[in-house]
């Protein structure tokens, strides 16, 4: 990657690999959002906690998507915080679903560490934070910085 772009300019957080990350977050905003909307309307009484959590997850995903698309330093920080919240959420809910199944009679995106979604909810915040950290102004790669 570095070889093909020797004079790599400072990239925006929503471009390059960021574009893939934005796309995945957009997908998860739609997936978690439509799922929770449907569940909240159609079957709220079955598992209110699980469905509200799905809605919260959708909001977090939406924030990250918008922040990545808009770009800029404050958006980067916001996205970083949201990724941390997301990681905390998926770890907490994942552990809860294993420890206390009765609290979650129905699945959420974060149940069992996102197993029903190919563990992407677990991998995505880590990838997102690594990407955002790389895009930080002080650490922006000009030429010659070794790339992982």
């Amino acid at each position: 990657m570095a070889e093909s772009q020797p004079k790599e300019k400072r990239r925006k957080i929503g471009e390059g690999p960021g574009r893939l990350i934005v796309s995945l977050y957009a997908v998860f905003t739609v997936a978690a959002g439509s799922r929770s909307l449907y569940q909240l309307i159609a079957q709220f009484h079955q598992a209110p906690l699980a469905y509200v959590l799905s809605a919260v997850a959708a909001v977090v995903y939406a924030f990250i998507t918008v922040a990545l698309v808009r770009g800029g330093e404050s958006a980067r920080r916001l996205a970083m915080v949201c990724c941390a919240v997301e990681l905390a959420g998926v770890l907490a809910v994942g552990t809860l679903t294993i420890a206390d199944t009765s609290a979650f009679p129905d699945q959420t995106v974060w149940s069992y560490y996102g197993m029903g979604y190919l563990f992407i909810p677990l991998v995505l915040p880590v990838t997102g934070m690594l990407w955002l950290r790389k895009a930080a102004p002080q650490r922006v790669s000009t030429a010659g910085q070794p790339q992982a």
Partner: peptide
């Protein structure tokens, strides 16, 4: 179509990666 649109905006390998993700999804 959404993945294709993203790969039009991103004319690098990452545009291709987005379509790959779209196919898997």
């Amino acid at each position: 179509p959404a993945a294709g649109f993203m790969s039009l905006l991103e004319r690098t390998r990452w545009g291709s990666a987005t379509v790959t993700a779209g196919g898997v999804i």
